[in-house]
Simulated assay, not measured.
Amino acid sequence: MPETDSSFRRPDLLRLDYDTYRALPAVANSDLSRLRDALEGRAPRPQSSSNEGALGFGTAFHTALLEPDDYVAGQPGLNDTLVWWLVEGVKLNSQLNRLLEEGIPEASVLFTEPTTDTLCKLRADLIVDRPDQPFTVIDFKTTMARDADQFLWQCSAYDYDRQAAFYTDALHAERFLLVGVQKVEPFGVFSIEVSEQMLAEGRSKYQRLLRLLKAPATAPAYRAEAVQAAVDALGLSEEE
């Protein structure tokens, strides 16, 4: 994490619904994933609002865990019993349960990334900001990982390290926890405190993509068209 500047003021935590957050004209970590996909030759990801189509399992789990009053049971194709089973599994962990009780869920943040001067945004699962504790960001992931070691591998392979660095740097967080929740038996919960090495690797990833967003013409020639299309699709290109 960058050295703490005594003059630094953390950006405000905003309470926005998901569709309002998505409409903010700023770069999110998910936008960087779309740019990465273009750079690596993967198929473009569909963009959808929170109320389009059947509710995804991960979204349902996050709602039940973080905003239970907003949970709507009986959605097509959704196993409500399993969702709440996973929630209870998280809460059986005394440390995580305490963080859930003390934290601020689903806070949105707008900030300018300083190395590229890019307006960015994030939406954190949970933020704990208490005077007697390190400023902590927690992100929950449903996973098919068979154990904690495989989940740790996924953190790098799925670019969770990039998300951790993106959020940590924006908020000058002192601690970032990635929590993997198995959605199949034995329904384990893996809590990983992101290391400085993981943050450094993730920081390199997000800064590289932000530089590419600013200058898509620097992409390799064989990916230039796809990268430019991804940048155009984000609707964030700077006017000449």
Rank of each mutant, 00 (worst) to 15 (best):
S94L: 08
A148F: 05
P105S: 13
T168G: 04
A60C: 07
A60W: 01
N29I: 07
T218M: 10
V87F: 03
S237L: 10
C155Y: 04
V189A: 08
E88S: 09
Q133R: 14
L78K: 02
T116N: 00
S156W: 06
L122V: 12
L209D: 05
A233N: 08
D37F: 05
Q133E: 11
V179S: 01
A164V: 09
G180A: 08
L99W: 04
E174W: 06
A43N: 04
I127Y: 02
D159S: 15
S191C: 13
L199W: 03
W84S: 00
F111A: 15
Y160C: 10
E238Q: 06
Q154M: 11
P76E: 04
A230F: 07
G77R: 02
A145Q: 03
L16F: 11
V83S: 07
R34A: 15
L210Y: 03
A26I: 08
E106V: 11
T81F: 07
A226K: 12
E201Y: 05
D37V: 00
Q228A: 13
P216L: 02
L39D: 06
L32H: 09
R123C: 08
T20G: 01
T112W: 01
Y71M: 04
V90H: 01
T136R: 04
E102T: 12
A219G: 07
A23V: 05
E40L: 13
V72K: 11
M144S: 15
L178E: 07
A107I: 04
C155M: 14
D125F: 03
V194S: 00
L14G: 07
D159V: 12
P11R: 10
Q154W: 09
R175S: 13
E185F: 00
R123I: 04
K205V: 12
D129W: 03
R123P: 00
Q182H: 08
R9G: 12
T136C: 10
F57Q: 00
A233L: 06
S30N: 13
P114K: 05
S191W: 00
H172W: 10
E238T: 14
V227W: 00
R130H: 12
T115A: 13
G77W: 00
F187A: 10
R34I: 09
E106P: 04
Q150C: 02
Q154K: 14
A200V: 11
C120N: 05
S50N: 09
T136E: 00
F135P: 03
A165L: 05
E106H: 09
S237T: 15
E88A: 11
A219L: 09
E52Q: 15
R203F: 06
E185A: 15
D159H: 14
E196M: 08
P2F: 11
R130S: 10
S49M: 07
A173N: 01
T142G: 05
E201S: 07
S33M: 13
V231S: 06
R146V: 15
